[in-house]
């Protein structure tokens, strides 16, 4: 037995290419099987004819793509982008200070990081339901406010755009905090001292040194929030009510209740293309930014 192991290791050792493939193999298999192939299937479906009871029938048409350019759907696409950008901005404004404090927290660092990732220990679905319990008319927040006498009748919070935004920000905030923390943590403190000696007051020190040097984390964080946010459907569905708030809900509906798989596929591809364009524009802006001259 040992001989086989030795021999195969020796064989691998002489063939660096085989070595590389054996390392790439498992991951590649997964991605091809469950990402590349399904996406190709969807691409093909998006040009096929809708089946009456779901599924597709043979044929070629671009009608589904045309259909998307109806104002009704464009408005959803636009709203999706608007919500995602606002959500990313809120996550950035809320997450940066948290990341900054954690990066400077000394021996509390690990505990604070642990707290940031703690929500991941429970399912996102469960946490979203928990938010429903907080936000609904008979929920905890309204109960407290009424008990305190601040309001007489409950405030409607659930199934509003605000509730969707609160849920999205809550869900994605850790994805903003962690990469920003990582780049702030690496920041060489002597650079801040150098800036101070050169006459930079705390504000200038932040804008001219800390922020530009943490830009890689900010960019990573923004992408990690923006992209999944554009595709989210669970939060808008549960907290926004049954309305088609975001494009993710549209796609989900086409595949489930509306049974229009080709149109759902086409909408997915349009979203994907829009995300690609948006990310490219974003990285372009970032490259040109005077803060990031590297």
């Amino acid at each position: 037995m040992a001989g086989v192991r030795e021999r195969s290791l020796a064989w691998l050792h002489r063939r660096p290419q085989a070595q590389a493939w054996s390392l790439l193999g498992p991951g590649t298999f997964w991605l091809v099987m469950f990402f590349a192939i399904p996406i190709i299937i969807m691409l093909v479906y998006s040009f096929m004819v809708r089946g009456i009871y779901g599924g597709v029938e043979p044929g070629f048409t671009i009608e589904h793509y045309k259909r998307f350019f109806d104002p009704l759907y464009l408005r959803i696409l636009f709203r999706t982008f608007w919500i995602s950008i606002v959500c990313t901005a809120i996550c950035l404004l809320a997450g940066y200070p948290v990341a900054y404090v954690i990066a400077r927290a000394g021996r509390w660092k690990n505990l604070l990081l642990f707290l940031v990732v703690l929500p991941f220990w429970t399912s996102f679905l469960v946490r979203t339901y928990a938010m429903i319990f907080m936000l609904r008319d008979s929920g905890l927040i309204n109960a407290w406010l009424m008990k305190l006498g601040l309001i007489q009748t409950p405030i409607t919070m659930l199934y509003t755009p605000g509730a969707v935004m609160a849920g999205l920000v809550y869900g994605f905030l850790p994805f903003m905090i962690l990469p920003i923390y990582a780049s702030l943590e690496k920041l060489d403190l002597s650079l801040l001292e150098a800036a101070e000696v050169l006459g930079a007051k705390p504000a200038a020190r932040f804008w001219k040194v800390t922020l530009p040097l943490s830009m890689p984390g900010v960019v990573a964080g923004c992408l990690l929030v923006l992209i999944p946010c554009l595709g989210s459907f669970l939060t808008p569905d549960l907290l926004g009510g049954a309305k088609e708030v975001m494009i993710g809900n549209l796609v989900q509906n086409q595949f489930s209740s509306a049974r229009n798989w080709p149109f759902g596929s086409a909408a997915s591809f349009i979203l994907m293309a829009a995300v690609l364009v948006a990310v490219m524009i974003y990285l372009r802006i970032k490259d040109r930014s005077p803060l990031e001259e590297k």
């Binding site: 002597s190 650079l191 001292e193 150098a194 000696v197 040097l213 001259e293």
Partner: peptide, 16 residues
């Protein structure tokens, strides 16, 4: 009103 040269130079890596 002082200036300083640091041990590791502390040049700003993002600036020319």
């Amino acid at each position: 009103n002082i200036s300083m040269v640091f041990q590791n130079y502390a040049l700003f890596p993002h600036l020319t």
